[in-house]
């Protein structure tokens, strides 16, 4: 399925369950996203993570809604909230664990017409992600050599992060421009994104089924 269509579908479904209280809809979403995740063949660590992650929030939702809710039927509400939490996590995983970010950004650029400056700026910044953990460690160790301990809430650490961001942004944008990137200029594409009619149809059918469950449950 095209990344953009998947994103849109998951976003609509997530927003819809945020504003409605329906246990069976949540269960249906959990089942469909569960099947999709199994079909996507993730590593067993990721499956374990997906099973473990909801436990604590679910317990929290159970105790808080059964003890502090204003409705008489706290258990029912708690069940809806617990299934909602699992639905969010699995829906999120159905996107972020299975989607190639680069092709998602391709779709945003070519089909949603987001300005190329944003798309390529984001691509550039994302390529720094692997260095960020190291950079923060470097800052902390450099400070420790002078006997200063920088914690994650120290203004100095955040200030240094801003300085580094500015420096990297300056260098990267200069490098990109000197390699021929022109801001918001029409671009040609090596890989053109095509969204199959089948993808739209599939997404529409899923959404339609979901509305039917709302009506008949």
């Amino acid at each position: 399925m095209n990344a953009g269509v998947k994103f849109l579908l998951i976003l609509i479904v997530s927003l819809e369950i945020s504003f409605t209280l329906n246990f069976w809809v949540n269960v249906a979403i959990i089942i469909v996203s569960g099947f999709y995740l199994i079909y996507s063949r993730l590593s067993w660590q990721r499956y374990a993570l997906l099973l473990l992650l909801p436990i604590l929030p679910a317990l929290g939702a159970w105790t808080s809604f059964t003890m502090h809710s204003t409705t008489e039927n706290g258990e029912q509400l708690a069940a809806i909230m617990i299934t909602r939490i699992i639905a969010y996590i699995w829906l999120g995983a159905a996107f972020s664990f299975t989607t190639n970010m680069s092709s998602f950004l391709d779709t945003l650029e070519q089909k949603c017409y987001i300005p190329t400056t944003f798309i390529y700026g984001l691509r550039g910044a994302l390529s720094f992600m692997p260095h960020i953990r190291q950079e923060i460690k470097t800052m902390q160790q450099a400070a420790r050599m002078r006997g200063i301990i920088l914690r994650s809430y120290s203004p100095q650490l955040l200030f240094k992060a801003i300085l580094i961001s500015l420096q990297w942004a300056e260098r990267l944008s200069t490098a990109m421009i000197s390699h021929g990137f022109t801001e918001n200029e029409e671009r040609t594409h090596f890989l053109t994104v095509h969204i199959n009619k089948r993808d739209w149809l599939f997404a529409f059918c899923l959404l339609f089924t979901l509305q039917m469950i709302y009506i008949f449950s």
Binding site: F118, L122, A125, A161, S165
Partner: peptide, 10 residues
């Protein structure tokens, strides 16, 4: 844009 995204990531 890069500056903003980097700050966000940091």
């Amino acid at each position: 844009v890069i500056f903003l995204a980097l700050i966000g990531v940091f």
